[in-house]
């Protein structure tokens, strides 16, 4: 009698396994109506266009040294590099030494550099000024690192992620926007978009890839101030 129940149990389990692994084909429903309208439902501020003038150039932001600073305040004779940056994004971490290296190289060639943190320090306490100061000090940032209160500058620029780079020429016109390079993992294999753009400005040429995209962390938007 017990043996029969054993076979029933095993048979039942086998049956259940069979059903789980075999999906029956159903007839495909008819294609959707062509009236469906593609849409972009997120809030995206339009990225500053190539050739546009540096917006909010006089806008003062708190620097890690306790003073206030604007992007105009770091303007170089050849141009200005504004990088949207933050404390916690691993993409920023991967690019930190490259950004520092480029700043060290090109500051001497007439470019001003500034890192701007647009993230909400209330919802994300790790983005607060205290941690910005620690980071700048530990890594010996050769550029100012300012807090963009109300994410004002980020909105004006149409910055959308960190890191997000904007290079302006001596006339404050945008000549390059995008990533630092195209390979966060392997610097040796990376196409150095920003470096190429900086060299182009120095030789009076147009940046070869003026507008690029890169992965990064979303900006943690603050309420408009």
């Amino acid at each position: 009698m017990k043996k029969i129940w054993l076979f029933v149990l095993l048979g039942g389990m086998a049956f259940v396994n069979y059903i789980a692994f075999n999906k029956t084909d159903a007839q495909a429903p008819p294609p959707q109506s062509a009236n469906l309208v593609p849409q972009v439902s997120s809030v995206i501020y339009a990225e500053l266009a190539i050739g546009a003038t540096m917006p909010f150039a006089d806008h003062l932001m708190e620097n890690v040294d306790g003073k206030t600073l604007s992007t105009k305040g770091v303007k170089g004779t050849k141009g200005t590099v504004v990088i949207f940056w933050c404390n916690t994004c691993p993409w920023v971490a991967r690019y930190e030494s490259r950004a520092i290296s480029l700043a060290n190289q090109y500051k001497n060639k007439g470019f001003g550099f500034i890192a701007v943190n647009p993230n909400d320090p209330v919802a994300y306490p790790e983005e607060a000024m205290g941690f910005m100061k620690t980071k700048a000090q530990e890594k010996q940032y050769p550029f100012p690192y300012v807090a963009d209160a109300g994410s004002t500058l980020a909105r004006a620029y149409g910055a959308a992620r960190t890191p997000h780079v904007f290079l302006f020429d001596a006339a404050d016109k945008l000549v390059y926007v995008g990533g630092i390079d195209d390979n966060p993992q392997k610097e040796a294999e990376a196409k150095p978009y920003l470096k190429n753009a900086l060299d182009a400005v120095l030789s009076g040429k147009t940046a070869p890839d003026a507008k690029t995209r890169a992965f990064g962390c979303t900006i943690k938007w603050q309420e408009k101030s």
Binding site: V40, I44, E47, A160, R161, H164, G179, R213, A214, F215, G216, C217, T218, I219
Partner: peptide
Amino acid sequence: HKSWSGAVP
């Protein structure tokens, strides 16, 4: 998408 900045998610 032309408007995707590359930010995630």
